[in-house]
Each structure stands twice: as C-alpha cells, then as structure tokens.
C-alpha cells in the first residue's frame, strides 16, 4: 500500500474541507435559491476549490476522469492508493 506524506494528506484535507462548504451551500441553495449572499459564497468557494484541486492532482495524480493529466510522474487515475487504502 502506497504511503502518503503528511504534506499531501494535509492538501487532501484542505480539499475535503472546501468540498464540505460547497456540499453545504449546494443543499442550502436547493431550498433557498434566491439567497444572494449564499450564491456569492458558493461562487468564491468554487473558485478556491479549483485551485486546491489542481494542487492535489499535481501531487496525487488525477482525482477523476475527464480531466487533463498532471505534468509530473504522478499516479494515473487507475493507480492507488484508493481512498480506503490511505
């Protein structure tokens, strides 16, 4: 099982944190579609997410299919470690 450095784990947790904010805002906006403040927060968080996701993929390799391959020799989509192996 591949081991992951503390730095990479931290980066992954940053992505999980920002995704949690988006998950919360998405459900909230499903029932409060006219809340401008929440929409603005969603927009800002989604942009921040793109930056973190890009940093994660540069170090971890692709998180999902249909995205450009990272430049470095990072693991491909079908290589571990998988989430339950971390």
């Amino acid at each position: 099982m591949a081991q992951m450095s503390a730095k990479k784990m931290k980066l992954l947790e940053d992505l999980q944190a920002v995704d949690f904010v988006l998950a919360e805002l998405t459900l909230y906006l499903d029932t409060h579609p006219d809340d401008a403040e929440a929409l603005q927060q969603y927009q800002e968080t989604a942009e921040k997410r793109q930056e973190i996701k890009s940093a994660v993929e540069t170090q971890f390799g692709a998180l999902c299919r249909n995205t450009p391959l990272p430049e470095q020799n990072t693991p491909g989509w079908d290589e571990g470690p998988w989430p339950w192996q971390l």
């Binding site: 992954l12 947790e13 992505l15 999980q16 995704d19 949690f20 998950a23 971890f60 692709a62 998180l63 999902c64 299919r65 249909n66 989509w77 998988w82 989430p83 339950w84």
Partner: peptide, 12 residues
C-alpha cells in the same frame, strides 16, 4: 455520475 478518488470526510 463522476467518481472522485477521495472520501467526503477522513476515515481513521
């Protein structure tokens, strides 16, 4: 659906 290779919240 598109799968992302991470958990929603850490599991230890």
């Amino acid at each position: 659906w598109v799968y992302e290779k991470k958990l929603m919240y850490p599991v230890k």
